[in-house]
Simulated assay, not measured.
Amino acid sequence: MTFTSIPIVDVHALVSGDETGRDAVVAELGRAAREVGFAQIVGHGVDPILVDGLKDAAERFFALPDDAKMDVYIGNSTNHRGYVPPGEEVFAGATPDHKEAFDLSIDLPSDHPEYLAGNPLLGPNQWPDLPDFDEPVNAYYESVFALGRVLLRAFAEALGEAADRFDRYVTTPPAQLRMIHYPYDPDASDRPGIGAHTDYEVFTLLLPTAPGLEVLNADGDWIDVPYREDAFVLNIGDLLEIWTNGVFTATSHRVRKVAEERYSFPLFFNVDHDTRVDPLERFVDADGPRYGGVTAGEHLFAQTAQSFTYLRKRLAAGEIALPDNARPLYSLGREAQRSAPAV
């Protein structure tokens, strides 16, 4: 199937516990995941005060001098947390993205066993020396993460599984929040702000502040995602594509270059690092699975290590290594399905 617009799904019945409307919302989410891989989520219940606090923190951080932001450079981290300067991230051999970012995740203590064991994605955040920054950012993270767990259970039900089929694997996952800044550029050209890609986790909940996001349909056309101030953009990630054997698709997307200043806040919802993700039996026919299984955290690290300059340098120097059977960049999603069979 192809699509020419992005569906809007009101999830109020899910977040409010309204059992009378719940089944209809679950069915809508399932259709959006099967047919598009994207949806605009309204009625989500996230407090606008938390959104305002996050935006204020982002504006103040990205207004800092470059040397102050580089004090928390992501390359100083051992668990992929901190400031991402322009040009640091490159998708699948494309031109460097025209953006800067700050990456964080579940803030575990420095004596947490996973961090002490050298897990490359878990541990403490690297916070900037900026007043009133980490508190509003963490408050927003916790609220949207809670929304993500509600949607994860709904996706399981839409697939005919028990509500906790995926949620049982959510305790301390590497679920990353990115604070992304696209600077004002009056000479904006066709060069992308973020190149075409799929997301590596289970799904993403994105809060943008301006237009620019585009989604690839089955005909190879780029479809605009209209900006809505009251909506999160939800998109299916690699792991749900693998778990459903392609029934849910990690639709490729990009950010086109726009002149106006733009902020974007994706929370990449994930399951625990060591979760094994294989196609569920109900979606595998006599021809066998279309996808080889992955370990959730290893897949995320492999994709990340192939797209960040500081990690590619560590790979080249032999300081780190990709997990066994790491997938190449951009090997999942609707565009990959159009060009070659999934493996």
Results as ranks from 00 to 15, higher is better:
residue 137 V to K: 02
residue 176 Q to A: 15
residue 155 F to D: 02
residue 99 K to D: 10
residue 136 P to D: 07
residue 132 D to T: 03
residue 190 D to I: 10
residue 155 F to Q: 07
residue 86 P to Y: 01
residue 112 H to C: 08
residue 107 D to C: 01
residue 149 R to M: 11
residue 141 Y to R: 00
residue 144 V to F: 09
residue 205 L to F: 02
residue 143 S to C: 08
residue 141 Y to W: 02
residue 96 P to Y: 06
residue 121 L to A: 01
residue 99 K to P: 06
residue 121 L to M: 10
residue 89 E to H: 13
residue 107 D to P: 04
residue 175 A to R: 03
residue 131 P to A: 13
residue 89 E to I: 03
residue 92 A to R: 14
residue 120 P to T: 02
residue 121 L to N: 02
residue 191 R to P: 06
residue 92 A to P: 11
residue 99 K to H: 11
residue 165 R to E: 14
residue 96 P to F: 07
residue 116 L to V: 12
residue 166 F to K: 01
residue 117 A to D: 10
residue 208 P to S: 04
residue 195 G to C: 01
residue 87 G to F: 04
residue 191 R to T: 15
residue 86 P to Q: 12
residue 142 E to F: 10
residue 134 D to G: 01
residue 174 P to Q: 04
residue 90 V to R: 14
residue 91 F to L: 14
residue 102 F to M: 11
residue 97 D to A: 10
residue 91 F to K: 13
residue 101 A to E: 05
residue 152 L to P: 02
residue 114 E to C: 10
residue 108 L to E: 06
residue 146 A to Y: 09
residue 183 P to H: 12
residue 126 Q to L: 13
residue 199 D to F: 08
residue 163 A to W: 06
residue 193 G to I: 00
residue 116 L to E: 13
residue 132 D to R: 00
residue 109 P to H: 09
residue 109 P to L: 05
residue 97 D to M: 08
residue 121 L to E: 04
residue 192 P to Y: 03
residue 184 Y to V: 11
residue 122 L to S: 02
residue 176 Q to Y: 14
residue 143 S to I: 10
residue 114 E to Q: 10
residue 120 P to I: 03
residue 117 A to C: 09
residue 207 L to P: 07
residue 187 D to G: 08
residue 205 L to R: 00
residue 171 T to C: 12
residue 139 A to H: 07
residue 167 D to A: 14
residue 84 V to N: 01
residue 157 E to P: 05
residue 134 D to Q: 13
residue 154 A to T: 06
residue 131 P to V: 05
residue 143 S to G: 04
residue 153 R to M: 14
residue 206 L to H: 00
residue 88 E to C: 03
residue 131 P to H: 12
residue 202 V to R: 02
residue 94 A to T: 12
residue 141 Y to M: 01
residue 95 T to W: 02
residue 100 E to R: 00
residue 97 D to T: 07
residue 153 R to N: 12
residue 130 L to E: 04
residue 161 E to D: 11
residue 135 E to P: 05
residue 171 T to P: 04
residue 168 R to H: 09
residue 86 P to N: 07
residue 198 T to Y: 13
residue 172 T to G: 07
residue 123 G to D: 01
residue 119 N to M: 01
residue 202 V to F: 15
residue 159 L to Y: 00
residue 95 T to M: 10
residue 175 A to T: 15
residue 143 S to W: 06
residue 143 S to K: 13
residue 189 S to F: 11
residue 204 T to D: 07
residue 159 L to K: 05
residue 98 H to I: 12
residue 136 P to I: 05
residue 106 I to K: 11
